[in-house]
Computed example of a mutant assay.
Amino acid sequence: MAVADRRQRERERRRTEIIDAAERLFYTKGFDSVTMDMIADEVELSKGSLYVLFKSKDSLFFAIVARKHRESLDLLVERMAGARSGGDGIRAIVQWYIDVARANPEYNEMATTYGPLLWSRMDSADDRLLAENAIQFNSLLHAAIDRGIEDGTVRDDLDPAMLGFYITMISMSVASPLPAWKKGFALAGITFDQVLDTFSRFIDPAIDRCRKKRG
């Protein structure tokens, strides 16, 4: 048993080293320019040994995404614990999107530049890798929506499932805009920081039950 445990720890340590190396290379050289040979050289592994742990460069991309999601969700759980109402919980989620985007510019650049194509060809194994994080996020979001409808801080005239989709899609698009949108910001004389700074002012009246009634 001790031998098996040691082998598992060694395997996980090696996986972490490979993910770290791939992340550095993707950030500095760009996903398209990096090869599995380059990653193998970076961690001093044979290419065959690398393929035992990761079947493709795409799988390494999604391993990086899954780890970033996991780390970010830990932060969100902490913030949600202090929410005094459902509305506050949703605002915490929106602010979390903004803060994670600001704290991880290299990751954001990689994910928005290469993510759309890679997501379109993601296989079932990579999908399962990300599913657990998505389930936890949706659970946190919909708990906040349900709580807000019950305590009167979130509008109740929209289907809660649809409201969850709106919040998620808009927040993701604002916090991680595609390159074409960033070009649009520049042409309009708007900085990405300005977009992030004003986003909460847009989302508040969209979810606030009291503001809806006053309108």
Rank of each mutant, 00 (worst) to 15 (best):
171 S>R: 08
84 R>C: 09
57 K>W: 15
4 A>E: 14
167 I>V: 15
75 L>R: 05
30 G>N: 01
122 M>A: 07
182 K>F: 00
120 S>D: 03
153 T>S: 15
84 R>Q: 14
206 A>N: 04
160 P>E: 06
89 G>W: 01
92 A>F: 09
81 A>C: 04
108 N>P: 03
170 I>S: 08
198 T>M: 08
16 T>D: 07
11 R>C: 07
103 A>N: 13
33 S>L: 13
55 K>H: 07
171 S>Q: 12
176 S>H: 14
69 H>M: 13
18 I>Q: 00
212 K>S: 15
120 S>Y: 02
74 D>V: 13
51 Y>K: 08
174 V>M: 15
205 P>K: 10
116 P>H: 00
9 R>H: 02
94 V>T: 07
192 F>L: 03
65 V>H: 06
196 L>E: 05
192 F>T: 07
134 A>F: 12
199 F>N: 02
31 F>K: 08
33 S>H: 13
124 S>C: 00
17 E>W: 08
155 R>W: 06
87 G>S: 09
93 I>P: 02
195 V>T: 15
23 E>V: 03
47 K>M: 06
96 W>M: 07
126 D>K: 01
8 Q>K: 10
186 A>K: 10
140 L>P: 00
95 Q>P: 04
123 D>H: 05
56 S>E: 14
100 V>D: 13
74 D>R: 13
50 L>N: 01
150 E>Y: 10
120 S>C: 00
210 C>D: 13
105 P>K: 03
171 S>A: 12
21 A>Q: 03
151 D>Y: 00
100 V>G: 05
68 K>A: 08
101 A>D: 11
91 R>V: 02
100 V>H: 11
4 A>N: 05
205 P>D: 05
11 R>V: 03
146 D>H: 10
161 A>K: 15
67 R>G: 00
121 R>S: 12
192 F>G: 01
59 S>H: 15
202 F>W: 05
107 Y>Q: 13
186 A>N: 04
118 L>M: 04
194 Q>H: 13
19 I>L: 09
148 G>F: 01
125 A>Q: 09
23 E>P: 07
94 V>L: 12
56 S>D: 07
87 G>I: 02
96 W>C: 02
57 K>L: 15
